[in-house]
Design a protein around this nucleic acid. Structure first.
Lengths: 192, 192
DNA sequence: GTCTATAACGAGATAGAC
DNA sequence: GTCTATCTCGTTATAGAC
């Protein structure tokens, strides 16, 4: 769940825009902000991303891909279901440590104002997280390391909700430890 | 936790602006939007609220007051700690049923872009919720209806985080039941 | 691929008449 | 208390030169 490289202009634009969306929201940043930070002009941005909507859709696709790769990494690393859940929560904690909100959590707040393509992409991100979590929860129940007191489907939705909310609130207090405490409680509440 | 009345201009402005902030965010609405909806002009808005920041601060103060009154109503209605927790969650559900996000949850996403006065007011809202919840949790432990397995302080932060996050995500799916499921699980996880 | 220049519009805000 | 008129600035976006 990280990137960084020498990077061409398009990628540097995405890096800056991603941070701005995660900290200020979709309606809280402009092409002028990105251009100024990169020392280029606004029309140069439009060369790489014709519209703000196109830039936004690219940001979500990129974030989704990186997140999916991180989930693949967790699966590849092995460990029991509880360990995977802790690592899943750690992905969120890493974002918060950079003083950012989850990209799609932030865009969920802006949802009503987003162009249609972005709206659907945000929901697909949550769907993918939910599907992965369900798999981990099912596996944990089968192997007896996780509590089997309610449907994995419901538990997965609970996990996503609590982690997104904990990010949102902890960021308001500039207190990542507040997030970590919630994450620990959450994992504990699921373990057998 | 509701209002509505014959209402003068200032109050009608607040009603419209509140809904717009809760659905579109602070940077997703304008004086022009409010004015158009009320059939008045932008300068008339500025007569009642000189700046957008002032309007924003008034919105939070008003919301905070109404929320505090609702908490007072829960206390006055009696019932055990678990019942109070369910009623607390129901306050959020009522907001979501109107297809809105919690005002302060939405503003927490916009936090970095808010004028200083609004930022502090958002945090004070969370603090007040947390304090009230702590009281309910302590009472529930003392009377034996709630589980006493971790500090009320931590549990209160967990409740706020999970409910705010569940609102954020459930709204993306236009699915209030998704919120209610999370709220039920949450209360159950706290009961003895 | 990046620039200058500019269009076309919307934002928050003010002056001053009624 | 609400209006018309206007200011200034920021926004997304395009045309066309280099």
């Amino acid at each position: 769940m990280s990137a960084a490289a020498p990077a061409g202009t398009a990628e540097r634009i995405l890096e800056v825009a991603e941070r701005l969306v995660q900290t200020r929201g979709y309606n809280g940043f402009s092409y002028a902000d990105v251009a100024a930070e990169l020392g280029i002009t606004k029309p140069s941005l439009h060369y790489h991303f014709a519209s703000k909507a196109e830039l936004g859709e690219t940001l979500i696709a990129r974030y989704h891909t990186r997140f999916a790769a991180a989930l693949g990494g967790i699966d590849a690393a092995g460990g029991d279901a509880e360990t995977r859940l802790r690592r899943y929560a750690a992905l969120y904690a890493d974002v918060l440590d950079k003083q950012r909100m989850c990209l799609c959590g932030m865009l969920a707040a802006d949802l009503e104002t987003l162009p249609g393509g972005m709206r659907e992409a945000v929901v697909r991100f949550f769907d993918a997280s939910e599907t992965w979590l369900e798999g981990v929860l099912d596996e944990g129940k089968a192997s007896g390391t996780l509590r089997n007191d309610s449907p994995s489907h419901d538990q997965a939705q609970m996990v996503i909700s609590a982690l997104e909310g904990a990010m949102l609130v902890a960021r308001s207090y500039h207190d990542p430890e507040r997030f970590r405490m919630v994450a620990r409680r959450l994992v504990t509440s699921l373990s057998a």
